[in-house]
Design a protein around this nucleic acid. Structure first.
Lengths: 233, 233
DNA sequence: TAGCAAGAAAATATCGATTTTATTTCTGTT
DNA sequence: AACAGAAATAAAATCGATATTTTCTTGCTA
């Protein structure tokens, strides 16, 4: 369900690029050539440039003065910082949600969880399904809507999107297998709806940190084989 | 102390526009004409447009598809949300800072506070001094550096910058007078360095909320006279 | 062969102009 | 006089081209 027709060309290219980035279509750290993307989307450089500038503001790409743009490079240091920020902020907002969310919030959480539960985790090829990704995103977002704070929600969402850059490679590459992710989600949803703030926060924290741990384990095992595009030291 | 010479034209215009916005040079909600700014800075539209796009990402201006950009309009609703987000995040980061900051952090806080203390609050005309503004910013930033988290710091800073849009009008117009702001800062600094997390968080919370309260009181007194441009008369 | 320098090629940043969209002004009608 | 619609104006979005800067290539020197 994409927006019907983006008012402006720039908006469309921005949305497409964003989806590609979050879908892991580009290697982290790789250079994004404006001219190439321009012809690819059938638009002028200005349009691509504007989209890039927006993406840079969100931290999904990086602007290198006089040298264009590249996909935000991954690093263990940043992964740890990002995880820490996410845990701090998402748990704080979840607490707010649990204490201030009403019946509509409970319903939204249960609905989002049900949708997530019914969406296949991976496609037959073992790749991350786009539908699941969307449902996952919606579930985590629903958890935070009880706080009724647009600012906090969007900050949390932005951080989550950044970590999606990592998670994609984690799941595709590290094969983060021995986890029952569905159970984790159910646990979080149950505790949240039951208004068990401490329990829910604990569960969410573990949920977030588990993915980080899996990726770290993978990075550890790869020491020495790192390339510029990947998990550089 | 501005950066010597921005590599790119865009960077320079961005920085200038940003400073003007935070200095309250434009009325909130007012339209920003690209052509006008272009000739004003002696650059092409593309350059202004890129700067605007960046500022929109930070929330200082708003992009209206097919209608250009305007200074982010002020609203009581958003002020309350912003304040809430700031309190939640800044206090959480301050806690981290206090628990993890080392001696360098303590020193930085003390130094920043000393600088702030020695900088005049307002100019002779009663306007907010640019130097004080800078020192104030540096002080609050120093408080958070102990957490050693670039992401959290930049999120907190971004939120503070947004609220600067409000604070400017609060101080200039509402004449937020019967406060001993210097004492508030000293109190926060003392408690932070003394590692009294709860006390420091409490003091910081009151510090943030006091400005909001002053602006709200002003807005209240103006009920009925608000126009589309925002709170200011 | 390694290192460096000059030139060639490619890519970016910026510009000026065109196209498209929004806004205002002007008309004719009720 | 108030309103709806149409032309005129103004503004934004996009384009294609130019000027700079970076990057790559090549050839020379030690």
């Amino acid at each position: 369900m994409t927006s019907p027709e983006p008012k402006t060309h720039s908006e469309g290219v921005y949305a497409s690029l964003r989806a590609e980035l979050l879908g892991g279509a580009f290697l982290p750290g790789s250079k994004l050539r404006l001219a190439g993307l321009g012809t690819r989307y059938g638009v002028s450089l200005s349009v691509v440039r504007e989209a890039m500038t927006r993406l840079a503001g969100e931290g999904l790409v990086r602007a290198l003065p006089q040298r264009g743009f590249c996909v935000t490079p991954l690093s263990i240091e940043d992964l740890l910082d990002l995880t820490r920020a996410r845990v701090l902020i998402e748990t704080a907002v979840l607490r707010e949600s649990i204490s201030q969310g009403g019946l509509e919030w409970e319903s939204a959480v249960i609905a989002a969880h049900h949708t997530l539960q019914g969406t296949p985790y991976t496609t037959r090829e073992g790749h991350l399904g786009g539908a699941w990704s969307e449902a996952h995103h919606a579930f985590h977002r629903a958890l935070l809507t009880g706080a009724k704070s647009p600012r906090l929600e969007s900050i949390a969402t932005e951080l989550r999107d950044c970590s999606l850059l990592y998670q994609h490679w984690s799941i595709e590459i590290a094969g983060d297998v021995d986890r029952d992710v569905a159970a984790e989600h159910r646990h979080i949803a149950d505790l949240a709806v039951a208004r068990d703030a401490e329990g829910a926060v604990q569960a969410l924290t573990e949920h977030i940190e588990r993915t980080t741990a899996a990726l770290l384990a993978y990075a550890e095992s790869q020491t020495g084989q790192q390339r510029a595009a990947g998990i550089p030291a």
